[in-house]
Design a protein around this nucleic acid. Structure first.
Lengths: 112, 112
DNA sequence: ACTAAATGCAACTATATGGTTGCCAATCTG
DNA sequence: CAGATTGGCAACCATATAGTTGCATTTAGT
């Protein structure tokens, strides 16, 4: 069962980073990072952008799995999903670890 | 000295994430994550893309500060720069922390 | 001096992205 | 029911992005 686990192994974190690569989307995530759920109208309230623009950004975030929306009544509420964030974090941790590793090996070599 | 420190306060991690949001660029970073320095020719050796395409990606990474290139002889060597990666990491740490925080507050509330 | 290697620069194409506007549908609320 | 909120859909625009090709330039080797 090397790849058919329940968590759908992340083959490529690039889409997640891509979704994070926009100011507006980052601010949306910030607003949702308190765990609360918010409607599109609410999320587009204090921005200069159109509601539609915000909607598009939310779709992008949703596609990347960073956010999840469900319709409740006439509004659609969005909530943050922490999993992809953890994934991105661990990816960066990996790069940083390799880097540190290389550094310490280099140091060991130099100091011999 | 609130903003003129040596670390060049990060006002917006979005560009860094944007630079990370591409498979090809991530693979370039991986190749460089051992701390070694590599030429463009070397970096475009085992890809299906053109050398020019790789060059462009390297420029993007360089603009985001993730990589640094210097010309040595006839080739230009690129090296990874860990600072922006640390920055991106700490940003994600922040979001995750807020999330966890909200969760524990919620738990405290529910369990009362 | 000549040739091969490694880049840089520019032009060009196709597609994705961010944003807008207009309009229609669903859902509350008085 | 009538009117106001909230959102979805579609068309459209401008710009950015990913990638290509062709050609000129610099540097290394022999």
């Amino acid at each position: 069962m090397s790849s058919a686990s329940g968590h759908a192994r992340a083959p490529d974190p690039a889409p997640i980073f891509a979704a994070l690569g926009d100011r507006t989307r980052l601010s949306l995530l910030m607003k949702l990072s308190d765990g609360q759920t918010r409607s599109i109208a609410r999320l587009s309230a204090d921005t200069s952008l159109t509601r539609q623009a915000i909607t598009k950004h939310l779709r992008v975030l949703e596609t990347a799995g960073l956010v999840e929306g469900r319709r409740v009544g006439r509004e659609s509420r969005f909530a943050l999903r922490p999993e992809p964030i953890a994934e991105a974090r661990s990816y960066l941790d990996g790069v940083a670890a390799q880097w540190d590793d290389a550094l310490s090996r280099l140091r060991a070599f130099v100091e011999r």
